[in-house]
Every structure is written in structure tokens, then in C-alpha cells.
Design a protein around this nucleic acid. Structure first.
Lengths: 193, 193
DNA sequence: GTCTATAAAGCGATAGAC
DNA sequence: GTCTATCGCTTTATAGAC
């Protein structure tokens, strides 16, 4: 009897553990700044192993990291916003979920980093999709709170934009409290009549 | 009689004409993405000439571009905000000045790009200073409009952050109208009692 | 002051041993 | 599946002719 273990399952598990590490490297250094040497150091894997997992190289790594981030937001933020049961609670949960995801302003948004960087064109579709679905889901919740459709759409855009701007300013001023204050202001603005 | 021309003046003039071109390359490709080859193509100058003007290389180029941007905002945005004669007009002028500077959302903020990129640490001081002085100048004007100091400071922070976020989102969604809408919302929020 | 040539290092990516 | 070695290219920066 051989010690037979399903190699696919093992590989999938390792890959899943790999993506968050890659994400942090891309966040810290940007897409172009994240060299394979840095990625290799952060993951403890040689280039050979990295190309075994990601035959498409750095671009595939970034694509999968973006897809994982998108999946997290879809499950934890967007889907609850679309749930009709308690839209006000979903909006409050979004704000607290965003606060913890971005570590109260200490962590930057990789999608925003890529949007401002040179690699924007290569990832235009997932980047646009992420923000579009965020705004749409939030607008749905706001409409269910009684706002007219146009107001809901505009207020949702304001929320997404404020979060991104707060992350930029927090990073620029090296002051994470900017982000916390912005989320607090945002809560008031979103819930206003 | 020789055709004696002051070489310093000529050099300064050329250098001044050079900086905006460099700025556009940095904006379009980011600090790391702006290779000397791209800069050479954009300016029509060989590497030798570039190093003649900027012995400190790419870093010096970026420093001088940032200084020029800072100087423009100081003269056209910050100083009018600090002028006590008509604070409401100065705020309105800021919004329209910002709209034209960022080409109604088609142009990105280089200071924000650097803040989110890998080069942030190298330019931490000028980046922080730019945003700090913007917020301070705006807070001064808001206070002169009758707002309490704490409210003025927080509202000024909200304005700076919203402009940055609008530029990020406009770029991410490839929709400059986001920026125009954000400026419109911002005008209402800034002038509110 | 502008150019070409070149150096030295780092990059993404590949090949092949194990 | 992981590694080392290496390829080919690009990068920043310098040297020196003109």
C-alpha cells in the first residue's frame, strides 16, 4: 500500500496559501516594482517553482491575486450589500469590513495601486469590474434604504472614491488615522436622508 | 565684439521647458516605469544631455518635477486660499483651478501616483508636504468662512482626499466624468453650513 | 551641449539536473 | 516539485568623441 495523496489537492492548497503573500509584495512594491527576486524572497520559493505554479509568469500571478481579492470582496462585501433582508446593516458591515481589510488605513488597495500604475492597461478589465460591482452593489443597498436611484448611484460612487482617496492620503501623509476619519464621515454621509 | 550670451539663463530656460515633459512621462508611466529611454524619446534629448541637465539622474528629475508642481499649486491654489480678502471666492477658484489642472479627470496626480508607488519612501517629505500645505491652506479659508477650527480641518481633509480618490476612480473606470461629479459634490459639501 | 558606445547590474523567463 | 545556471534583454549610469 503506497502513501497515495492526491497531488491536485495539495497543489491547490499551496497555491491558495501563496496568493496572499504575492498580494503583499505587489501592494508594497507595485506591479513593476515587485521583481521575481522579491517575490522569491517573500515566498521562499525559487523562480523555477514560481514558474511551475504560474506558467504565465508575473502577469498571471497578478491576475490571480486580483481575482482572489475580487472574490473576497464579492463574498464579504458585495453579496451582503445585494441581500435585501437588511440593507442598513449591510452598509454598516461594509464599512467595518473595509476598515479591517485595509487594516484601518495601514494597508493599501492593490486595485487602486494598479489603476494608477503603468500596468493599468494590462489589467483594465478586472480593475474596472471591481469598482463597478462595488458601486452597483452599494447603490442597490442605498436604493433599498429609500433613496432615489440617481441619488443612490451618485452616493455609492462618492463612497468608493472616498475610500480610495483616504487610502492614498493616509499613505502620502503616513497617517492611517486619515482613513478612520474618512470612514466615519462616510458613514454619516451614506446614512443621511 | 563677440556674441556673448549668458549660458546660465539659456540653460535655465531649457530646463524650465523640460520639466513639464518629464512630468507627463512620470504621470503616464509612474516613477519606476518611466525609463530613461522613454524620457529620451519624450524630450528628444539623448541620455548624455539628460545627465548634463540632471547629474543626479532620474531621482533628481522627479524631485525637480515635484518641486515645480508644488510651486504651481502654491502660487495658484494655496496662496489664494490663505488670502483673507475673499475666502469663498478662493475656494471656488481652487475647485475650478483643480478641474483645469487635472484636465477634468483625464490627468492624474503625480504626487498621488508616487505616494502609492514603490518610490514613496524616497519622496516621503515632498509628498507629505504637498498634501499637508493643501489641507492647511484650505482649512484657513474655511475657518474664515465661519467654520470652527476642528470642522474646517476635517472638511479640508475630506476635500483633498476626495480629489485624490476621484482621480483614482476616474482612471480605474476610464471615466473622467467621475472627477467632474466629485468636484460638484465637493463644492456643495465645502460650502455647507 | 549633444551625441554614441559601453559598462555593470537587474530584469523576466527558460532549460534541465535532481 | 524545487533547484541552479543561464539566456537575452533592459535598465541606470558613465566615458569620451565631437
Amino acid at each position: 500500500m503506497k502513501t497515495l495523496r492526491p497531488p491536485a489537492a495539495k497543489a491547490t492548497t499551496d497555491r491558495a496559501a501563496l496568493l496572499p503573500l504575492l498580494g503583499e509584495v505587489f501592494r508594497a512594491h507595485g506591479y513593476e516594482g515587485a521583481s521575481l527576486a522579491l517575490i522569491s524572497a517573500a515566498t521562499g520559493l525559487g523562480k523555477g517553482s514560481l514558474y511551475h505554479f504560474f506558467p504565465g509568469g508575473k502577469k498571471q500571478m497578478a491576475e490571480e491575486v486580483l481575482a482572489e481579492i475580487d472574490g473576497w470582496f464579492e463574498a464579504n462585501i458585495f453579496a451582503p450589500l445585494r441581500d435585501p433582508s437588511d440593507p442598513r446593516a449591510a452598509i454598516a458591515a461594509m464599512l467595518s469590513g473595509v476598515d479591517s481589510y485595509f487594516r484601518s488605513g495601514h494597508r493599501v488597495c492593490l486595485v487602486g495601486v494598479i489603476a494608477l500604475g503603468h500596468a493599468r492597461d494590462e489589467f483594465a478589465a478586472p480593475v474596472n469590474d471591481y469598482f463597478a460591482r462595488w458601486q452597483d452593489a452599494l447603490a442597490v443597498a442605498l436604493r433599498r434604504c429609500g433613496l432615489p436611484a440617481a441619488t443612490a448611484r451618485r452616493r455609492a460612487e462618492d463612497a468608493v472614491l472616498s475610500i480610495q482617496g483616504a487610502l492614498v492620503l493616509a499613505r502620502a501623509r503616513n497617517d492611517a488615522a486619515v482613513f478612520t476619519r474618512a470612514l466615519s464621515d462616510l458613514k454619516t454621509r451614506l446614512m443621511a436622508a
